[in-house]
């Protein structure tokens, strides 16, 4: 009984935390917009990568580690709901598709498609 009470209490906190974030996110856009880590260079590239296997937050920490180690990258957004990784680069910098595919594959995922804007 004690365990159930503790579990429900913790869940209540967890659910409350998520509701707060959901509310904030909806004020900005339908999708969970915003950086997971880093910053955005307004003159830099925004590279969208559709990924297979991106379901576990705890495991997707790898994506941050891998890309934030690169000089071209200023920020990363990981969108678990849509299986989407967005890479923000510095002005005048780019990362080749083959390298992106290689880094994501090495991190344990599969790339579906890459597009830039």
């Amino acid at each position: 009984m004690k365990f159930i009470f503790i579990a429900l209490t913790l869940l209540n906190f967890a659910y409350a935390d998520e509701n707060v974030h959901s509310h904030v996110n909806h004020q900005h856009s339908e999708r969970a917009e915003g950086l997971s880590v880093g910053s955005i260079d307004p003159d830099g590239l925004r590279i969208n990568v559709d990924v297979f296997g991106l379901v576990c937050d705890f495991c997707a920490q790898a994506i941050e580690k891998v890309f934030m180690n690169r000089n071209e990258v200023t920020g990363i957004e990981v969108d678990l709901a849509n299986g989407l990784i967005t890479i923000f680069t510095k002005h005048g910098e780019d990362i080749e598709d083959n390298l992106i595919r290689s880094l994501i594959t090495d991190a344990g995922y599969n790339v579906d498609k890459i597009n830039r804007r």
């Binding site: 998520e18 937050d57 990981v78």
Partner: peptide, 14 residues
């Protein structure tokens, strides 16, 4: 998972 949380948020599983 009783609710679906975004990346970097608090996730809970029963």
């Amino acid at each position: 998972a009783p609710y679906i949380a975004g990346f970097g948020k608090l996730h809970a599983w029963l």
